[in-house]
C-alpha cells in the first residue's frame, strides 16, 4: 500500500482509495476480510483513528461491512457496479489513447487497426 505522508491529501482518503480500487477491480472479493484497523495502523505506522476513518468511509459507501468482534469484511459487489467501474476506466484510457493518437498524427483507422491487433494478442 502506497501512502504519501506529506501531501495535502488526508491519509485516510488515500487508504480508502486504494482499498476501493482493490474491491472494484475484484482483487478483493466479497467475504474477504480487511486487515484489522490496529494491524493496518501498525504496518503503515500511522494512527488507529486514521485506518478506522478510512474503513468507515468505505462502509458508508457500502463497499465493506463491520462485523462486531470480527472486523471489516468486503461486501459482495454488484456485478453491474463492477462492470460500470471498468467501463468508466475504459473510457478514461480510450480518451488518453485518442489524445496520444492526435499528437502522433494517427487517424481513426490506424487506431482501430492497432486496437484489433492488440485484442488478438494474449494479454
Amino acid at each position: 500500500m502506497k501512502i504519501y505522508q506529506n501531501t495535502n491529501e488526508p491519509i485516510y482518503k488515500q487508504i480508502a482509495a486504494q482499498f476501493r480500487e482493490q474491491i472494484l477491480t475484484g482483487q478483493l472479493q466479497g467475504g474477504d476480510p480487511l486487515p484489522s484497523i490496529r494491524a493496518l495502523a501498525q504496518d503503515l505506522r500511522i494512527s488507529v483513528i486514521t485506518t478506522m476513518k478510512a474503513y468507515e468511509e468505505l462502509s458508508a459507501e457500502g463497499l465493506v461491512t463491520a462485523t462486531k468482534g470480527k472486523g471489516y469484511f468486503v461486501n459482495a459487489q454488484d456485478a453491474q457496479l463492477l462492470a460500470e467501474q471498468h467501463m468508466r476506466q475504459l473510457e478514461e484510457h480510450l480518451t488518453d489513447a485518442i489524445y496520444s493518437a492526435r499528437i502522433a498524427g494517427m487517424g481513426l483507422d490506424e487506431v482501430q487497426q492497432t486496437l484489433a491487433a492488440l485484442w488478438d494478442m494474449d494479454i
Binding site: S36, R38, A39, A41, Q42, R45, V48
Partner: peptide, 9 residues
Amino acid sequence: REYLAERDG
C-alpha cells in the same frame, strides 16, 4: 501500536 494490536480493541 504493538501494545494496542496485541489485544485488538
